[in-house]
Measured scan of single mutants.
Amino acid sequence: EAHAAIDTFTKYLDIDEDFATVLVEEGFSTLEELAYVPMKELLEIEGLDEPTVEALRERAKNALATIAQ
Results as ranks from 00 to 15, higher is better:
Leu48Met: 13
Glu44Gln: 15
Arg57Ile: 13
Glu26His: 15
Phe9Ala: 00
Ile45Leu: 08
Asp18Glu: 13
Arg57Asn: 03
Glu25Leu: 15
Ile15Asn: 00
Glu1Cys: 08
Gly47Ile: 06
Ser29His: 13
Ile67Val: 07
Thr66Gly: 08
Leu42Tyr: 04
Thr52Gln: 09
Glu54Pro: 01
Gln69Val: 08
Glu44Asp: 11
Ala60Gly: 01
Leu56Tyr: 01
Tyr36Leu: 09
Leu23Thr: 00
Ala63Met: 05
Pro51Phe: 13
Ser29Tyr: 15
Leu42Lys: 04
Tyr36Asn: 13
Glu54Ser: 14
Glu46Cys: 08
Glu32Phe: 11
Leu48Ile: 10
Ala35Leu: 14
Val37Ser: 14
Ala60Ser: 04
Ala60Lys: 01
Gly47Trp: 10
Ile15Glu: 00
Pro51Gly: 11
Ala2Trp: 15
Val37Trp: 10
Lys40Cys: 07
Ile67Phe: 06
Thr52Asn: 05
Pro51Tyr: 11
Ala2Gln: 14
Ile67Thr: 05
Phe9Val: 00
Pro38Leu: 08
Glu58Asn: 12
Pro38Ile: 06
Val22Tyr: 15
Asp16Arg: 06
Ala5Trp: 08
Glu54Ala: 14
Ala68Glu: 09
Met39Glu: 06
Glu33Tyr: 08
Asp18Tyr: 14
Ala55Thr: 09
Val37Lys: 13
Thr66Leu: 15
Leu56Ile: 09
Ile6Trp: 03
Leu23Gly: 00
Glu50Gln: 11
Lys61Leu: 13
Leu43Cys: 05
Gly47Asn: 06
Thr8Gly: 04
Thr8Met: 15
Val37Met: 11
Pro38Trp: 06
Asp16Trp: 04
Thr30Trp: 03
Leu64Trp: 04
Thr10Asp: 00
Val53Thr: 05
Ser29Trp: 15
Ala2Met: 14
Ala2Ile: 13
Ala55Tyr: 10
Val22Asp: 03
Glu32Thr: 07
Val24Ala: 07
Ala20Arg: 01
Leu42His: 03
Asp18Leu: 11
Asn62Asp: 08
Leu48Gly: 02
Tyr36Met: 11
Phe19Arg: 04
Phe28Ser: 00
Leu56Glu: 00
Thr8Pro: 02
Leu23Asn: 00
Ala55Pro: 01
Thr10Arg: 09
Glu41Ile: 14
Phe28Asn: 01
Lys61Trp: 06
Leu34His: 00
Phe9Tyr: 03
Ile67His: 06
His3Lys: 15
Ile67Tyr: 04
Glu33Gly: 07
Glu41Ala: 12
Thr21Ile: 12
Glu32Met: 09
Thr52Tyr: 07
Tyr12Gln: 03
Gly47Phe: 07
Ile45Asn: 03
Thr52Val: 08
Thr30Phe: 04
Ala35Pro: 02
Leu56Thr: 00
Asp49Asn: 08
Glu25Gly: 12
Lys61His: 07
Ala20Ile: 03
Ile15Pro: 01
Tyr12Ser: 03
Glu17Ile: 14
Asp49Pro: 04
Val37Cys: 11
Leu56Ser: 00
Thr21Cys: 07
His3Thr: 11
